[in-house]
Simulated assay, not measured.
Amino acid sequence: MFEFATVTLASLFAGFIDAIVGGGGLILVPALFSVFPNAAPATLFGTNKGASVWGTAWATGQYARRVQMAWSALLPAAVAALAGSALGAWAVTLVPPTGLRKALPFILLAVFLYTLMRKDLGREHRRRYTGAPEAALASLIGLVIGFYDGFFGPGTGSFFVFLFVRLLGYDFLHASASAKLLNTATNLSALALFISKGHIWWHYALVMAVANVAGSLLGTRLALKHGAGFVRAVFMVVVGALILKTGYDAYRLG
């Protein structure tokens, strides 16, 4: 019961953070590894995806009801993200992500500093493109970050949000809503792989999924209520936490 309570509570908080700006894995993955230190890592990652995909999908639906989504660009981008995630998962079986692990804290630091210095970034929703150009650029973002998610993973939601803001001109609220759709696609791709290999604990994943959806509901409501400025602030906190976490993992583990 203690194990169930701990990972369920972690899933609730993860869904809450993930619904606002991504980064729920910062909470749920360490919790799973702490509670089950002797379990196979792939099984814990699979269980994490089995829970978090539901919260992400739920957040996508909630945002779609209240935020105008650029479906003509986002649907092909989601397909590209799914394909990219599958390619990344395949690539990691051939090449270990050691170099990327060491570079990631510095990439995230650059994102953090750029967003901090550009105080107007993502506060107003001004789409730079429409039609085919927007769909092509969104699909490129989906493919590249989807590949990254399958290959390594930490900060995927934050990268989606940042690139939608920086390259497509979305505000942070619209970028977060759009990122949820693409993140759902990458999570489904990864989950399918874990399920095919038997790396998931369904009895934990299903309970955690309910908690994740509940957290997602709360996070989505807060984001919709307080708007782009609130999402931007949470984005900065999450990216800051990612810098510390990925830096610690990369240079402590060597």
Rank of each mutant, 00 (worst) to 15 (best):
F106T: 04
Q62F: 15
A86S: 08
W54T: 05
K119I: 04
G50P: 08
L87I: 05
F106R: 05
W71A: 07
F36T: 05
V35Y: 03
F33C: 13
R118K: 13
Y63T: 08
G46V: 06
V35C: 00
L75V: 15
Y114R: 06
A110C: 04
L82W: 15
A64P: 06
L116I: 00
V67Q: 02
L108C: 01
V53H: 12
V95R: 11
L100C: 03
L108F: 11
L100M: 11
T93C: 07
R127F: 08
P96D: 11
R118G: 01
V79C: 08
V111C: 08
L100K: 07
L116R: 12
G61N: 06
M69C: 08
G55W: 09
R66N: 13
E124M: 03
Y114A: 09
M117H: 14
L28R: 00
A80W: 10
T130M: 01
G88I: 00
A91E: 03
F36M: 12
R127Y: 11
R101L: 10
E124F: 10
L113V: 14
N48A: 12
P96V: 05
V79L: 14
L28D: 06
A39Q: 14
V53M: 15
L104R: 09
S72V: 12
L108G: 00
Y129P: 00
T43R: 10
V95T: 03
L100D: 13
F112T: 03
A83T: 08
N38E: 13
A86C: 07
F45H: 14
N38Y: 12
